[in-house]
Design a protein around this nucleic acid. Structure first.
Ligand code: SF4
Ligand code: SF4
Lengths: 153, 153
DNA sequence: CATATTTAAGACTCTTTTGTCTGAAATTAT
DNA sequence: ATAATTTCAGACAAAAGAGTCTTAAATATG
């Protein structure tokens, strides 16, 4: 609805890596299997994140991806902007050009507020903090609906 | 960002028609020219609205489209659901299936609230009421940035 | 009736997004 | 060294979204 498919995948992958605290590099294959995302497609998406200097990668056995800096210092907004581009929170809800207070469309007033709330939602918590909440509260990052703590899955 | 291109066009066209109070049928060609939208594309979009019984149409000279019922009884939400489909305000922000309180993703709590605000934004004002505001406050529904009351445009 | 106007319907093209596949390069382990 | 693992790079294909075009049908006017 607001984010591209690729962006959703990127976020979920980043959150998964964030939950793997003590590990150095997490293989993309593992992420793709756990989250049920196409391996090759996910690879491309994570390459965007490494090129944006949000993640690092390492080839060969024991390789994978990891955060380029402290996950306490990375937000979902960083990932969104890398994948869906900057400025997706600056667009007119009716698709008009030059969105701004000077040339308002009929929804401007309310939309500008909600857009700001969305922005806050995506940048108010770090990946590290979200990972903690995911584990403590059992939030899901996959389509799987069963017990998030089951070892089967 | 949230709505498809087609949906933005549909909304803007509906708002334009709503501002043409006293007239019976407004030709699609006129709408497409005023709003700078491809005539043929807009035709298809408006056909969706007539098939959804939100608008009526009339062929031949003096023909065009009009609202099927009192524009005081139609909201943007009606148009959005007709064009982008029902349930676009019921999806998980991370693209997970079976969105709901029972199987929350990490953003659930906040997203569900914001999603509700969006829904409100789109269904709190009727087309008739919005048309009045557009005219009174000079809100724009086109890319044009100049004086909305100029007769040139 | 003939002509002009206007929507209806649908085929068609173009672009973007999404997803797949192959081979190369880097790294580790044997 | 050789083989196995894993990311990198890019070509390729499939699907969806956006937009164009042509023809038919309905209506009005002269
Ligand atoms: S009304 Fe809101 S969305 Fe529309 S142009 Fe103004 S700021 Fe942008
Ligand atoms: S967290 Fe929100 S968006 Fe995600 S599945 Fe639950 S309700 Fe849907």
């Amino acid at each position: 609805m607001i984010l591209s498919n690729a962006c959703d995948y990127g976020i979920r992958a980043a959150l998964y890596v964030a939950t793997q605290r003590d590990r150095k590099f997490v293989p993309i294959r593992e992420i793709s299997e756990k989250l049920q995302i196409s391996f090759h497609f996910l690879t491309k998406i994570l390459q965007i994140l490494t090129q944006a200097n949000l993640m690092t990668s390492f080839r060969g056995p024991n390789g994978g991806v990891a955060f380029a800096r402290d996950p306490n210092q990375i937000t979902l907004m960083d990932i969104i902007q890398a994948i869906d581009g900057p400025g997706i929170f600056e667009k007119c809800v009716l698709g008009l050009s030059e969105c701004g207070d000077e040339h308002p469309c009929p929804l401007h007033e309310r939309w500008a507020e909600i857009r700001e709330e969305l922005r806050q939602m995506f940048q108010s918590n770090s990946l590290a903090r979200m990972a903690t909440k995911i584990q403590q509260k059992g939030f899901r990052i996959t389509d799987y609906l069963g017990n998030p703590n089951s070892t089967i899955h």
